[in-house]
Amino acid sequence: MKIVREAIAGTLESNDVFVRVSPADKGLNIQVQSIVLGQFGAQIEQAARQTAQMLGVQNAVLSLDDRGAIDCTIRARVETALLRGAEVQA
């Protein structure tokens, strides 16, 4: 799946994550800001990466501003943002 436009999903409310995706040339660039970065930074990045891979997104910039979202929320928000930014609307 190819990211062709900038897109956002999620909110900055507690327990949510705000995700921004934009097109990129080579590879997945994932940036994570989080209030629980020390405790969950690696898991947040992994959730975002797996979601992108599952959708077959190879090139994108993903930036996450996390307010303590659990894994399934991160996956849902990343998926929504990627699909919104992709060629085909789902």
Binding site: A9, G10, I70, D71, C72, T73, R75, A76, R77, E79, T80, L83, R84, A90
Partner: peptide, 14 residues
Amino acid sequence: KDAARRLVQGAVQT
């Protein structure tokens, strides 16, 4: 609507 469906999906599954 698209975002809410995925959020509900994740919440119910988890």
